[in-house]
């Protein structure tokens, strides 16, 4: 009896692990993340990836943060009906066919189409605080990341802790810009209003920041002429 139980347990473990690995096994004709990274700009790419956050939908186009266990893929203005957009919940596996492009340093997939597949994966935030001033940071572009123990700095000469729009020319509901430092260096962070609008907790949290606050943050490692994280969570310590 014991032998049977042991065999059954072994079988169940084997099946469980097989199930785990199959969820990350790429289908025929699909690139690994390494192959995607090596692909030339403007070339056709096919990837299997998992939705991590939805930024926007408009005019049958969706902009989505996605990631697999090896890296991230930013899908810009991907063809998507409103009905399908609703199906793109966090973790949803999709097969994406499009073209690799770069805009102001942000590597992305454009002119893409997709199909939903079976499988789910939700990325854990990778702590990149120590990489902020290092060249290797770009290897994690578009990934879900965290920043720990940073200090809120004045966003401009007026001493404000945040700005509506990059220079303060906006209003409530627009993107929020704020600065935080670590290790003597200051970096700019953004609450992208399409990704996290003014009704979200992170939008309210940033509006409540004070210069000098110690904060932990999570977000996506977006790029615009350098690193420009799109923050989705801020916790004051």
């Amino acid at each position: 009896m014991k032998k049977i139980i042991v065999v059954l347990l072994a079988l169940s473990f084997a099946l469980a692990f097989a199930g785990c690995s199959s969820s990350d096994t790429k289908s025929e004709g699909v690139m690994t993340h390494a192959e995607y990274t090596a692909a030339a700009l403007d070339s056709k790419v096919v990837v299997e990836t998992y939705v991590q956050a939805k930024q926007s939908w408009w005019d049958n186009k969706a902009t989505v943060y996605t990631q697999d266990k090896d890296g991230a893929y930013f899908l810009y203005n991907m063809a998507c009906s409103e009905e399908d957009y609703a199906k793109l919940t966090t973790g949803t596996k999709i097969k994406v066919t499009g073209y690799k492009a770069e805009w102001a340093g942000e590597v992305e997939i454009i002119d893409a189409t997709f199909e939903i597949e079976k499988g789910s994966f939700v990325a854990k935030a990778l702590d990149v605080t120590a990489m902020l001033d290092k060249a290797e940071l770009i290897d994690h572009q578009n990934e879900f990341v965290s920043f720990k123990d940073m200090t809120v700095e004045a966003a401009d000469d007026s001493g404000a802790a945040f700005l509506y729009s990059w220079d303060g020319s906006g209003q409530d509901g627009d993107d929020l810009y704020f600065k935080a430092s670590v290790g003597g260096k200051t970096y700019t962070f953004t609450v992208e209003s399409y990704l996290c609008d003014k009704t979200t907790n992170v939008y309210a949290a940033v509006k409540a920041l004070n210069v000098g606050d110690k904060i932990d943050m999570e977000g996506f490692l977006y790029w615009y002429e350098g690193v420009n994280p799109h923050i989705t969570s801020v916790k004051v310590k």
């Binding site: 729009s165 990059w166 220079d167 303060g168 020319s169 906006g170």
Partner: peptide, 9 residues
């Protein structure tokens, strides 16, 4: 409309 320019606002 402004050109993302606080002087205009």
């Amino acid at each position: 409309k402004n050109d993302t320019n606080k002087n205009q606002t």
